[in-house]
């Protein structure tokens, strides 16, 4: 018999996990919404962040939270180079080209990780993260709370950056009307480069969290990309805050599926939710219709 507490427990973990899903998806959702590029290498940028935090911890004992900026910077740099060297050349051609090209970049990166760091699953284990926090009869780990707060903050600051800063607005208006942006003196090609690099940096930020909560491996990337894509479409393309809600729906749904059905149905739930929402609301939960 499943107790009342178990249900509350799985809903709560689902909510917290959902917040992390939002961060894992943030870079992809941002790049897709702003540039209409489905970045298939998104997961690999994220995994890179995870590896960086792992090695910083193992080699020099760096606190994974301190590794976050380094992870974001290096993943952002990789993203910058990918755009500068490859994607820029086909930016104005059909959208399918960027999909194929970023997919190729992803394959290259995951094989590079395999060569550099072997196929072993790397988990970033930090003891304090396992510390339990009791809320009535419910237990959650400190790590779940910390990662949730980081994810939430990342979404919040990205939203603020796009709404309030001049550079953020330049990114938005270039997405809305490229010609009008250029006519206002904005270097739209530089905006593209910046947006894609920010997308990579946001992915890199998610890597250490993924490594702390589970693990990273060379082929984790594609799995993350798919999940990020599902969430982006669920939230509605262009809706950054919607990612949190969509992430929590997915998180809670998965947790309840594990509790009531079986953990082998966990992934199935996400895809089912994806299809159902798309049937009911083709533009996603918070997307604009039409």
């Amino acid at each position: 018999m499943i107790s009342y507490n178990t249900i509350i427990q799985s809903i709560l973990s689902g909510l917290l996990e959902g917040g992390n899903y939002a961060l894992y998806s943030l870079g992809l959702a941002f790049v897709f919404g702003i540039m209409q590029i489905i970045n298939m290498a998104h997961g690999e940028f994220l995994v890179l962040g995870g590896y960086i935090a792992y090695w910083l911890l193992v080699k020099w004992g760096v606190n994974p939270l301190m590794a976050l900026p380094v992870a974001a910077l290096l993943a952002g740099g990789t993203s910058f180079l990918s755009y500068r060297i490859f994607i820029e050349r086909i930016r104005t051609t059909v959208e399918l080209n960027t999909l194929i090209l970023t997919f190729g970049i992803g394959i290259f990166l995951s094989n590079l990780y395999l060569q550099l760091w072997s196929a072993d699953l790397r988990s970033i284990s930090v003891h304090w993260m396992e510390d339990p926090v009791h809320l009535g009869g419910i237990y959650i780990s400190l790590g779940e709370i910390v990662t949730f707060v980081i994810s939430f903050a990342a979404v919040f600051f990205l939203h603020l950056f796009l709404r309030r800063t001049k550079t953020g607005k330049a990114i938005r208006i270039t997405a809305i009307d490229r010609d009008a942006a250029a006519l206002s003196g904005i270097n739209v090609e530089r905006v593209d480069l910046l947006a894609f690099s920010i997308g990579g940096a946001l992915a890199g930020l998610g890597g250490p969290l993924l490594g702390m909560l589970s693990f990273v491996s060379p082929n984790t990337g594609l799995h993350i990309t798919v999940k990020a894509f599902i969430l982006t479409v669920l939230a509605g393309v262009g809706s950054i805050p919607g990612l949190i809600v969509a992430g929590m729906m997915l998180g809670v749904g998965e947790a309840l599926t594990v509790t009531f059905v079986s953990s082998s149905f966990r992934e199935l739930f996400g895809f089912t939710l994806f299809l159902v929402i798309l049937l009911a609301r083709p533009s996603g939960l918070f997307g604009k219709r039409g």
Partner: peptide
């Protein structure tokens, strides 16, 4: 500068 045909404003702003 050019004022484009059809105004081309950034509607959500």
């Amino acid at each position: 500068t050019m004022i484009p045909e059809g105004r081309r404003l950034w509607a959500p702003l």
